[in-house]
């Protein structure tokens, strides 16, 4: 009989500290992609609200802490940290193993992100609870602000090594400047 041993996407790659930036992998627990069917948005939101206290998020927003839900594209959100309740009005797809999520924290975190993410992450524009689908380097991914100096990046699991490589490179550039 098989005895399967799990391994996380960034096994052997993280955590790391480069200059003032700390990079670590985040295990958010189960991840379910929820995509309400046509006309099923409010019914889906109601179930979520009853279960977790938050509904289906508007575009570019994340709600809750643990569990939480983050908008993840047209008609889609990722429920993280809890089993998905029965949602008859939505397609629910287990993606617990599909994504690598890393947390970046440090005084210069925005300078590092400016080297990999093309969108405007200035604090007055991209506030806590804001999330965006965008590019992370050349990779499709997502970025979420978790605090003043803390962000989470989401990328495809198979690209975990590339994600770490891109972040290391960006962080090295930033730390080389600040040490000048």
């Amino acid at each position: 009989m098989a005895k399967l041993i799990p391994s996380p996407p960034c096994a052997g790659l993280l955590p790391k500290t480069i200059g003032s930036l700390a990079i670590r992998e985040v295990d958010v627990g189960p991840i379910t992609l929820i995509a309400p069917f046509s006309g099923g948005g409010s019914a889906t939101s109601d179930v979520l609200k009853a279960e977790f206290g938050f509904g289906f998020p508007s575009p570019n927003r994340a709600l809750g802490e643990n569990p939480r839900i983050a908008w993840f594209g047209l008609n889609q959100a990722l429920l993280m940290g809890a089993a998905c309740p029965a949602l008859p009005q939505a397609a629910c797809v287990d993606q617990s193993d599909g994504w690598v999520i890393v947390c970046l924290e440090g005084a210069k975190v925005q300078d590092v992100l400016a080297r990999v993410v093309p969108i405007d992450l200035r604090a007055p524009v991209f506030k806590q609870g804001h999330t965006a689908r965008t590019l992370v380097g050349h990779m499709h991914g997502a970025v979420t602000r978790m605090g003043d100096q803390r962000f989470e990046l989401t990328a495809m699991r198979s690209m975990a090594a590339t994600l770490v490589h891109e972040l290391e490179r960006a962080a090295l550039g930033v730390s080389a400047r600040s040490s000048q």
Binding site: P59, N60, P118, A132, T134
Partner: peptide, 11 residues
């Protein structure tokens, strides 16, 4: 209309 203004590289 969903995400706001973005660089062409995303499209």
């Amino acid at each position: 209309p969903i995400c706001g203004e973005r660089d062409r590289r995303e499209f």
